[in-house]
Structure formats: structure tokens, C-alpha cells
């Protein structure tokens, strides 16, 4: 997506508070017999120290691909075709394998949806945590064990469970153990990709509260990915909304929830029924996202958009429509290219 250059520096990052990580014009394709799948197509955002950045959008919009690109764990047929991922001034996309090994887990760790099933079934939880510590840090066994006990305690598992095997733990406990492993090296950034999607609501709530508490106590940043916007509004400081490989709106969580600008965000908001108030008929979002091998020219949401008008055949700029609130939609003058303005004038 085209970036409005005049505003590309103003994502509301307060002066002095340098972002912890900055993703710039990231593009990732999956090579397929039908042609390249443009899964991530020009994504730009940053995450500040101690911040929870939420990333939401329908499945297939490219959220997990963004996460995997940041950690450089994408597998073929994926190729990163463009962009920079700046962490501490270094571009992760330029790192050697050795540098990457240092960077992963120490600087950025990851918890994903099926992680709780990725624990080694024949190793105790304690051994898996001490392994994770000792793989990256010289530490005597005894100290590593103490650290493992401490980690279990802070994620809410009794230290007595340290000798349990994964199958002896419930789904929620296993996900807590995975979070303990992700915390092992005390990284400043944790990427969580649908960490609670496979869990029941009650367990989900408990894990969300734990994540929130850990973030407050330990001060790390989180990139929190989910398709469930209601969950995201609770935990995030800022939220980015992704559609068909691009970010279409980015704002402070509360502002995004109370005054969403993009019609797609509005559609997502009217997709979850409320627990209070009168019963109003909801419409969700009719239709389905475009084929990412042949994405439509212009705004990618246009075909499903209730507010489509003349300029939508041309691509909107991802620009600041209000302070700290960016959107890519021709409803807002800031997003209009000269071409779009002409389309409006002609009408």
C-alpha cells in the first residue's frame, strides 16, 4: 500500500519514546502454482516499549505471516520481497543465522495458538523450561531449576507441578507453561498469535488476566494477534486492523472502539452481539475477502463496502485522519490521492 510520505513519521509516537520495533513497508508472498499469494502487502507499524499492540482481522488476512516475518521463521514457499524490520536500530531482515539465534527468544519470543500442543510430550515442564534457558544462557543446572520454578509461579502454576508431563496438565495450564518458556529470557517483546483461541471462555479470561498482570509487572511489549476484536479492545493500548494483506486502520484502542473510521472496522464492531442493551439485528460483513493472488485494484475492501463511492477504484493512502489515528479510506480527505480527488470532482 502507498504510504503518505508527509505523515509517515507521525504515528503518535511521543518524542523521545523511540519505538521498540518498527516494521516498514513489509511485503511477503507465498509462491503458488496460481502465482504469488500477496499475503502481506505493504505493512507499516511500530510497537513502543511496554505497549500492547493488537493486530486484528479475518482469518487469511496475513496476521500470522506478519508475526512469522518479524521472527524470520517463515518457511518456503514464503518469500519476504520488501521492507525492513528494525529492532534496536538493526534490520532483522539482514541478520545472519547466528545473529537470529541470539535475537529469537532473547529479544523477541512467541506464543501461538497451537503452542500448548507443541510442548514435548516426553519431557517434564521443568526440563523444557530449563532447556529453553540453558540453550541461550550459561547457567548452572541448579540455578536454572530455581528460575524455572520462579517462572512457573509467575504464570500461575504451582511449583510442585514442575515434574509434570504435558498430558498431565489441562489446556489452560499447558498454555501457561508455554508462556513461562516465552518469558524465560525476559525478552522485551513477546508475539502472541491467537494464544487463547483454542481455550474455553473461562480459561481464556484467566489467561488474559495473567498476561495483563505479567505485562504490568515485567514491563515487556506484546504484539497480540487475534480475530476477536472484543478480546483485543480489553487488553491493547493500540490496535491495527488488517484486511487482505494491508493495515487499513491504526489507533488508540479506546478511540478505535468508540470512533472507528474505516467501514471494515465498523463491520467488525457490529459482528459480535452485545450482552446488554436492546436486541438489535446485526449484519456482520457480507461477502468474503478477495483472492490475494489477484487482489483488486484500488481499495481492497470496496467490493464489500456499504459506503463505496467513485474514488474507491484507486488505492487510498494510509494517512493520519486525526492525531495518532491512521486510516486508509477515501471517506477521509487525508487518504485521497490526486487521482481520487479527480474522481470525486468528476462526479
Amino acid at each position: 500500500m502507498a504510504i503518505a510520505t508527509e505523515t509517515s513519521n507521525s504515528q503518535g509516537t511521543p518524542a523521545g519514546a523511540a519505538p521498540l520495533i518498527r516494521i516498514e513497508d513489509l511485503k511477503v508472498q507465498y509462491l503458488s502454482p496460481r502465482g504469488p499469494v500477496r499475503a502481506v502487502d505493504g505493512v507499516t507499524f511500530d510497537i513502543r516499549p511496554g505497549e500492547v499492540m493488537g493486530l486484528a482481522g479475518e482469518s487469511g488476512c496475513g496476521k500470522s505471516t506478519v508475526a512469522q516475518a518479524i521472527l524470520r521463521i517463515l518457511q518456503p514457499p514464503a518469500v519476504i520481497t520488501n521492507g525492513r524490520v528494525l529492532f534496536d536500530g538493526n534490520d532483522i531482515l539482514d541478520m545472519s543465522d547466528d545473529q537470529l539465534n541470539e535475537f529469537r527468544w532473547r529479544d523477541v519470543s512467541m506464543v501461538f495458538q497451537s503452542a500448548m500442543n507443541s510442548l514435548n510430550p516426553v519431557m517434564t515442564i521443568g526440563d523444557q523450561i530449563t532447556d529453553a534457558i540453558q540453550a541461550h544462557q550459561r547457567m548452572p543446572g541448579r540455578k536454572a531449576l530455581e528460575r524455572a520454578e520462579e517462572l512457573l509461579r509467575i504464570v500461575g502454576i504451582e511449583a510442585a507441578r514442575i515434574d509434570s508431563y504435558p498430558h498431565q496438565l489441562s489446556g489452560g495450564m499447558r498454555q501457561r507453561a508455554v508462556i513461562a518458556i516465552a518469558l524465560a529470557l525476559n525478552p522485551p517483546l513477546m508475539i502472541m498469535d491467537e494464544p487463547t483461541t483454542a481455550l474455553d471462555v473461562v480459561v481464556q479470561k484467566e489467561i488474559m488476566s495473567t498476561i495483563s498482570r505479567l505485562k504490568q509487572e515485567l514491563g515487556f511489549s506484546i504484539l497480540f494477534i487475534t480475530h476477536d476484536l472484543s478480546l483485543l479492545v480489553e487488553i491493547s493500548d493500540r490496535i491495527a486492523i488488517m484486511y487482505a494483506g494491508q493495515i487499513v486502520e491504526l489507533a488508540n484502542a479506546r478511540e478505535l472502539f468508540e470512533q472507528p473510521l474505516h467501514p471494515y472496522t465498523n463491520g467488525l464492531m457490529s459482528s459480535f452481539p452485545p450482552l446488554t442493551g436492546d436486541r438489535v439485528k446485526l449484519s456482520g460483513i457480507p461477502g468474503s475477502p478477495p483472492d490475494l493472488v489477484h487482489p483488486p485494484a484500488g481499495c481492497r475492501f470496496a467490493a464489500r463496502c456499504p459506503r463505496r463511492f467513485e474514488p474507491c477504484g484507486s488505492e487510498p493512502l494510509f494517512a493520519e485522519a486525526k492525531p495518532g489515528h491512521r486510516v486508509a479510506c477515501h471517506l477521509y480527505p487525508e487518504s485521497r490521492t490526486p487521482q481520487a480527488q479527480e474522481a470525486i470532482r468528476e462526479h
Binding site: V202, Q204, K205, M208, S230, L231, V233, E234
Partner: peptide, 24 residues
């Protein structure tokens, strides 16, 4: 009551006092 308190509520925001009812 427990089930209802676990539903994400964007209006209220997440409370960090962890649920009093734990277990499965």
C-alpha cells in the same frame, strides 16, 4: 455467573485481579 463474567467486555476493560474461581 462465572461464564458471564468471562465474556470479553470491551466496554469495561480487562480487570487484572485474577478470577477468584479457578480450576476446571
Amino acid at each position: 455467573q462465572l461464564l458471564l463474567s468471562a465474556v470479553p467486555n470491551p466496554h469495561a476493560g480487562l480487570r487484572t485481579d485474577e478470577a477468584t474461581t479457578r480450576g476446571e
